Amino acid sequence: MNSVPKFSLEEGKFLVKLARQSVEYFLKNKKYLPIPHTYPENLNKTVGIFITLSTFPGENLRGCIGYPYAFGPLIELCVSASTKAACEDPRFECVSTKELDNIVFEVTILSPMILLDQNKPFEEQIEIGRDGLLVTCDTYGKSGLLLPQVAVEWGFDKKKFLKEVCRKASLNDNCINDRNCKFYRFESQIFKEVSPNSDIKEEVLNERNI
């Protein structure tokens, strides 16, 4: 029940292309891309999504925004998150039209959040290459999320991954010991352009060097 819904490669390709189209449309028209009249029925599912923009070939982050908790159909969230990743990530300036030929789009579809048991070591409850992490500390009004691919790409072990999600939330490394903070794990399905505006593949993290 808590695993990520399975989407086909064709559905993944549709979402990645839609993400790029959404940004192109917004940069030109200054408004969101209308939802297509026809699209795969599976994209009406209510699941979380993140959109990541990276430079090519350097693979430097250019924007990443998403919705860990789904509040509408996946196809609608894709349009919104894509536009926000391109123009509302506070770490970056809005992308320009001329940049798009040097940017790779990546769509990450999220499973429901699974609360980790505070009475057991968190390291025993997570797996690198499978799980992303979310920490929420309502007492401090802070939260942070790291996608599963972050741990793989940076070579984090479990302990480091837990510390880094604390840092993402602008909290002390030891927030893993703070009973006011709740930790969640989640799984994902990732679809990504091989190069800008080209072939799209499904990323399988277990096939990378972990």
Rank of each mutant, 00 (worst) to 15 (best):
S22Y: 01
S22M: 03
V23G: 02
E24A: 07
E24H: 03
E24M: 09
F26K: 00
F26D: 10
L27W: 01
L27M: 09
L27H: 09
L27R: 10
K28M: 04
N29G: 05
N29H: 11
K31L: 08
K31F: 00
Y32T: 12
Y32V: 08
P34Q: 06
T38Q: 15
Y39G: 06
E41C: 00
E41L: 13
N42M: 12
N42I: 08
L43G: 03
N44R: 14
N44D: 15
T46R: 11
T46S: 13
V47C: 13
G48M: 05
G48H: 10
G48V: 07
I49D: 14
I51A: 09
I51G: 02
T52N: 05
L53F: 06
S54F: 07
F56Y: 04
F56Q: 08
N60F: 15
C64F: 08
C64S: 14
C64K: 02
I65C: 11
Y67A: 00
Y67M: 12
Y69L: 14
Y69H: 11
Y69G: 00
A70W: 11
A70S: 15
F71W: 13
G72C: 04
L74Q: 05
I75A: 10
C78H: 08
A81V: 02
S82V: 12
S82P: 07
T83L: 05
K84M: 15
K84P: 01
A85K: 07
A85E: 06
A85H: 03
A85V: 13
E88L: 08
D89I: 09
P90C: 10
F92K: 02
E93D: 15
V95H: 09
V95R: 08
T97D: 13
K98F: 03
L100H: 00
N102Y: 11
I103M: 03
V104P: 04
F105R: 03
E106K: 08
T108K: 06
I109G: 09
I109F: 02
L110F: 04
P112N: 09
L115R: 11
D117T: 01
D117F: 03
D117H: 00
D117E: 01
N119F: 04
P121L: 02
P121E: 08
F122V: 00
F122G: 02
E123P: 02
E124G: 00
E124T: 04
I126Q: 10
I126S: 04
I126W: 03
E127W: 01
E127C: 01
I128S: 01
R130V: 15
G132F: 11
G132K: 04
L134C: 01
L134H: 04
V135Y: 03
C137H: 12
D138C: 12
D138K: 14
T139M: 13
T139K: 15
Y140P: 05
Y140T: 05
G144H: 12
G144P: 12
L145V: 14
L145W: 00
L146S: 02
L146K: 00
L147V: 13
L147D: 07
P148W: 09
Q149G: 07
Q149E: 15
A151Q: 07
E153K: 10
G155E: 07
G155S: 13
F156V: 01
F156D: 04
D157T: 01
K158V: 10
K159L: 14
K159P: 05
